[in-house]
Design a binder for these strands. Structure first.
Lengths: 241, 241
DNA sequence: TCTATTTGTCTAATAAACTAGACAACTACT
DNA sequence: AGTAGTTGTCTAGTTTATTAGACAAATAGA
């Protein structure tokens, strides 16, 4: 990975270096326990000052990705990235089972609002129609994995918000509405920088990159039942189709 | 979209503002021809100086996303983002047909090398085995859409490099090896910043975000035939499953 | 024509990022 | 004990990003 020497892209040099090293680690070039090149060597590799490299390393140390030991070197601490499978039958908890010890979902709140153009198009209803909007965050072993906003048609699921706080999973609440099975109709994937709220809720550093997934689930008859906008930290997650 | 006021994340303020406005445009909040808020209003919205906003707008103007007109305001020029479909039968040219007038693929070169751990695992061969590596860039209406590196087992496809320059598509070359049909076995999707080479080849500005797709194609018997690492500019493309 | 609004351009000052060099503290090895 | 190599810390100077203010140039509408 080569990086841009001229700071004309609006990404600070220390961040480019941190991203490049993190990529070597999550990409498998450096395994857990490996010693990184010395600060001097990294400075030469990136054509940067040693202090700039140190700043990048201190960021990675704060993330828990590496750890420096005076006199010995800097070592890789942890190197795992979770995989989130996407397919016809995508279920959140099933997909990540086995990759983490504990998996929790926090419901941050919900409200009824009028559908904007994007939500209406996804759910196949008219803009302005009432929809239930649910905000949530999911965590694996205490580490935030995704920030999700879900919209559902109010007419069909008037008390969805009330039921989601009792039953823990969307699957269970859908079942309570008589929907035994549902499937994924489409998933759109994009990427962008995190904003302030996402940075806070996901425990990221400002400037982190998010994978953004927009998914529509349909019932057995093919009628849209939910539109979910999920944001995953790209440094901790990858999506698998 | 709220942005981080304190520049502690290594992303320059003008870039955060440019990203936020671009997101409003490709996300549909602003349509082609719409007038943006005035520079003063944007400065207030982002709690930044007008000059910082102007820098963000000049970047978007260079990208062709907006255009400023003295005395009148700044207007949205183009707002489209191409969708790249991913599924069991993913074919590059088919997927984008209809979204662009012209679709071209440039072959940047190829060579035979030894498979590293990642490539070997994807192709189901031993690390160190010989593989053909092919570099390419694809363009829609002259605008770069993806940068792809493909690895194939040398034993099975010794002259793949020679044939790809004559026949234009991978599908055609596979057919010349007697592979009438093939399908996508898995696709892993992640995101990161572009490096210098990718920035140049894709015609991006430093610091642009890439969607990274790692795909394995298999023949009718399920034997891996290719491992492709594609990088899409997140500002111009989204992936649809 | 006049006026309010908006983008374009210039100068200047402050804050942050980056570079440079020197030396201390610690480790591993001879 | 001595030495080479590594990370930790300090000072200082340069470049870049950001803010601040003023005014010119163009537009639209009264």
């Amino acid at each position: 990975m080569t990086i841009a020497k001229d700071m004309t892209g609006g990404i600070a040099l220390w961040r480019q270096i941190a991203d490049a090293i993190r990529l070597d680690i999550v990409g498998g070039k450096l395994a857990t326990g490996d010693r990184l090149p010395t600060e001097a060597a990294l400075a030469q590799r990136f054509s940067a000052n040693r202090h700039t490299v140190r700043r990048a390393l201190s960021v990675l140390a704060d993330e828990g990705v590496v750890g420096a030991e005076q006199g010995r070197g800097t070592f890789v601490r942890s190197a795992r990235r979770l995989s989130y499978p996407i397919g016809k039958r995508t279920r959140f908890s099933e997909g990540l089972a086995g990759q983490a010890r504990t998996l929790t979902t926090q419901h941050l709140g919900s409200r009824v609002e009028n559908a904007n153009a994007a939500v209406a198009a996804a759910l196949g209803i008219k803009p302005g129609n009432r929809v239930v909007r649910i905000e949530g965050v999911s965590l694996a072993d205490g580490l935030p994995l995704s920030r999700t906003t879900t919209w559902l048609p109010y007419r069909r699921f008037p008390d969805f918000a009330g039921r989601i706080v009792e039953r823990l999973s969307f699957t269970a609440v859908f079942a309570s509405y008589g929907i035994a099975d549902y499937s994924r109709s489409s998933t759109r994937i994009s990427a962008r920088h995190a904003d302030v709220e996402e940075t806070k809720l996901l425990g990221l550093r400002p400037g982190a990159i998010l994978l953004v997934s927009e998914a529509v689930d349909v019932d057995a008859e093919g009628v849209p039942i939910s539109y979910a906008l999920s944001r995953f930290p790209a440094e901790r997650m990858e999506l698998v189709v």
